[in-house]
Computed example of a mutant assay.
Amino acid sequence: MSGAVEAKLAELGLTLPEVVPPLAAYQPAVRSGVYVYTSGQLPIVEGKLTLTGKVGAEVTAEEAKDAARICALNALAAVKSVAGDLDRIARVVKVVGFVASASDFTGQPGVINGASELLGAVLGDKGVHARSAVGVAVLPLDAPVEVEIQVELND
Rank of each mutant, 00 (worst) to 15 (best):
K126I: 03
T52G: 06
D85S: 15
V59M: 03
V95F: 07
E18T: 14
S101Y: 02
V92K: 01
N113H: 10
A64N: 02
L73F: 04
G97C: 08
P140Y: 02
T15F: 09
S132Y: 03
A137V: 13
V151Y: 11
S132N: 06
G107L: 11
V45M: 10
F105P: 01
T106C: 04
H129P: 03
R69T: 05
A4F: 07
Y35A: 10
N113Y: 06
N154S: 12
Y35P: 00
L49P: 15
V111L: 09
T38M: 11
K48N: 12
R31H: 08
E62S: 09
F105V: 01
E146L: 09
P21F: 07
D104K: 11
K80N: 09
L123K: 00
A67Q: 07
L153N: 02
E117I: 09
K65H: 12
V138S: 13
A68F: 10
D66I: 07
A77Q: 05
S39P: 07
A61F: 01
G13E: 14
K8P: 01
G53E: 06
I89R: 01
H129S: 08
A83T: 13
G3E: 07
L49F: 02
R88E: 13
A100H: 06
E117T: 13
I70E: 10
V96F: 03
P28E: 13
T106M: 12
L141W: 05
V128E: 02
T50N: 09
L139Q: 06
R69D: 02
V45K: 14
P140Q: 05
L51G: 00
L139D: 00
V96W: 08
G47S: 13
V34H: 13
A29I: 04
E117S: 14
R88V: 11
V36P: 00
E152R: 11
Q108S: 10
C71A: 11
L23H: 06
R31A: 07
L23T: 11
I70L: 14
S32N: 07
P28R: 15
G13P: 01
V122T: 03
Q108Y: 04
T50I: 15
A64K: 03
A68R: 09
L118P: 08
E46C: 13
L153T: 02
L14K: 13
A78V: 03
E152M: 12
G124L: 10
G56C: 09
L51K: 02
Y37D: 05
S32P: 00
R91F: 01
S2M: 14
F98P: 00
P140L: 05
V151E: 04
V136P: 02
D87Q: 05
T52D: 07
K8R: 14
T38A: 13
L118A: 06
A67W: 10
V34P: 00
A29H: 06
D85L: 12
V93H: 12
R91K: 12
V92Q: 02
Q27H: 08
D85N: 15
S103V: 04
L139I: 06
G124F: 14
G40D: 12
A137Y: 05
G33H: 07
V96H: 08
P22M: 15
Q27E: 14
I149R: 10
V36R: 08
L139M: 09
R131M: 04
A68P: 00
E46L: 15
V82G: 05
V45L: 14
L119T: 04
V151M: 02
P28T: 14
G33E: 02
G114A: 15
L23P: 00
V99Q: 04
A57W: 05
